[in-house]
């Protein structure tokens, strides 16, 4: 149980030596290795953090790009739809215009056709009516009708308007030639006398007349003095009727109902 002081000193020295050796061979390398590993782990963690941040950034960028792409796509789609609509509308309008033009043309053609048809019908009807009327009147014309015509003519001479009467008198006075009296049939002596009497009353005592016949008058009588004519005949009536009912092309009926109505008439 004694303390060996040499051993104490030797052990103290041994211990100090051991401390130095252990520091050199154990603690320093181990701590350095641990530090190194910690640094590596820290660096790796930092790398991971950076990569994560980078990935996040890229993800954000990608998301933004995606959103942009979607937006762009939508814009393009909208534009395409709008363009299509416009084009469709344009085509529709063009088609409508074409159809309208065609329809107008057809309508016009139809109208023209109808008008020409109407005109033809009217002309033919008119011609038929005139020919029938003329034929009937020619058939009906006779001496007795002629006497009635003369009577009507004398009556008209009596009731001539003042200006007409004056014009005829002036024409006769300028020439002084006998008045040309035309009738469809030869007038009887009494009729000639009546006519002369009426002329005399109209023109004065010097009146003289030359009687001729003209079947073209159909039934009637006319006075001709120095180119001025006073007449009453069925042929005149027919001419004026023909003039009054002749249908000009420009006044062709437009509506179908009108066309029908004219066709019936």
């Amino acid at each position: 149980m004694q303390i060996n002081w040499f051993t104490v000193i030797a052990q103290l020295f041994n211990f100090i030596l051991l401390v130095w050796l252990m520091k050199r061979f154990l603690y320093a390398p181990i701590l350095a290795a641990i530090d190194e590993r910690e640094k590596k782990i820290k660096a790796q963690l930092n790398d991971a953090k950076d990569q994560k941040a980078e990935a996040k950034k890229e993800q954000d960028e990608f998301s933004a790009k995606n959103a942009d792409f979607d937006q762009h796509k939508k814009a393009l789609m909208d534009a395409a739809i709008a363009e299509t609509q416009t084009e469709r509308q344009k085509l529709l309008d063009a088609a409508r215009t074409d159809a309208e033009t065609l329809r107008t043309k057809q309508a016009r053609a139809l109208e023209e056709m109808q008008a020409s048809l109407q005109t033809d019908i009217a002309k033919k009807t008119q011609q038929a009516v005139f020919s029938i009327t003329q034929k009937a009147l020619v058939d009906l014309a006779s001496v007795s009708l002629e006497s009635q015509s003369v009577a009507v003519f004398i009556e008209r001479l009596r009731h001539l308007k003042a200006d007409e009467k004056q014009a005829f008198v002036d024409a006769f006075q300028a020439d002084k030639k006998p008045v040309q009296i035309k009738s469809a049939f030869a007038l009887s002596a009494s009729q000639q006398t009546d006519v002369k009497a009426a002329l005399t009353k109209l023109l004065g005592a010097s009146a003289d007349g030359a009687f001729t016949t003209d079947p073209a008058l159909i039934s009637g009588i006319s006075l001709m003095a120095n180119g001025y004519k006073l007449a009453w005949s069925v042929a005149d009536y027919l001419t004026s009727l023909e003039k009054s009912i002749s249908v000009p092309k420009s006044v062709a009926p437009k509506k179908e109902s009108d066309t029908k109505k004219h066709a019936v008439n």
């Binding site: 051993t7 041994n14 252990m22 061979f25 154990l26 190194e36 590993r37 590596k40």
Partner: peptide, 27 residues
Amino acid sequence: TLVTTWGLMVVMVVGSGLITRKLKTGL
């Protein structure tokens, strides 16, 4: 005492040296 101490010192130092000779800093 001294001889045993030296022996222990040798074992400790050599052991440490052998182990720390091939230290790895990886995972």
